[in-house]
Design a protein around this nucleic acid. Structure first.
Lengths: 98, 98
DNA sequence: ACTTCATATGAACAATAATTCATGATATGT
DNA sequence: ACATATCATGAATTATTGTTCATATGAAGT
């Protein structure tokens, strides 16, 4: 199953685990276990989430020995995040927690 | 409850009803009933969804008599949609349904 | 061929979000 | 003050997503 709609695309940003994965990959590409360790979640969970992210081309993958290295599609994602950041700054008042 | 995180923000685009509302409001601001008729959903459903969209400042509201006119925050939303559109064009191969 | 390491996958279960339905609130006109 | 139109809200229900756990797959080395 491919990412077949805008909604599907956005779902990948609308979830904490996926979002943390995205954020982690801003620095550098990583293998599944690396990521799992970095965000403190178990392999299977990370793997499931990676699959969905990759299906929507938010991430890319390449094999490297036994490992799979996931990398962020920066072309799309970085500008997107920047926009939302700007939006939140502007509209989310000082205490954004509640 | 306010929109307190990026995830919350993105949730508003990750749902069919909300997405259709957003799309409908690209043309012009509308009242709740207008919207409900336009997308063929019942008032209560639309209203619940509008509430969330407005909390994240994806929509704005103003009262006009008994009606509430919801309008799209085009500044943020239009460029966002354009970006995703581009992404989908590029990465979603010819038959994007399946 | 066997073992190991890294990752993927399916199915059961849990958590979260969306919808529905009944009702409440508010503005407006009479 | 009452009736009506428009919209919001809460709670129960349903639907969708996410997680967990056990297991499968696949690459690499021996």
């Amino acid at each position: 199953m491919k990412c077949r709609s805008y909604e599907d695309f956005f779902k990948n940003f609308a979830n904490k685990t996926k979002f943390r994965i995205i954020m982690s990959l801003k620095d550098k590409p990583m293998s599944v276990n690396e990521l799992a360790r970095k965000i403190g979640e178990e392999q299977s969970k990370v793997s499931h989430n990676l699959a969905k992210l990759a299906r929507c081309s938010i991430l890319g993958v390449k094999q490297k020995g036994k490992q799979r290295i996931y990398s962020l599609n920066k072309e799309t994602v970085i500008p997107m995040l920047r926009m939302v950041e700007k939006h939140v700054e502007k509209h989310c008042n000082t205490r954004c927690n509640k």
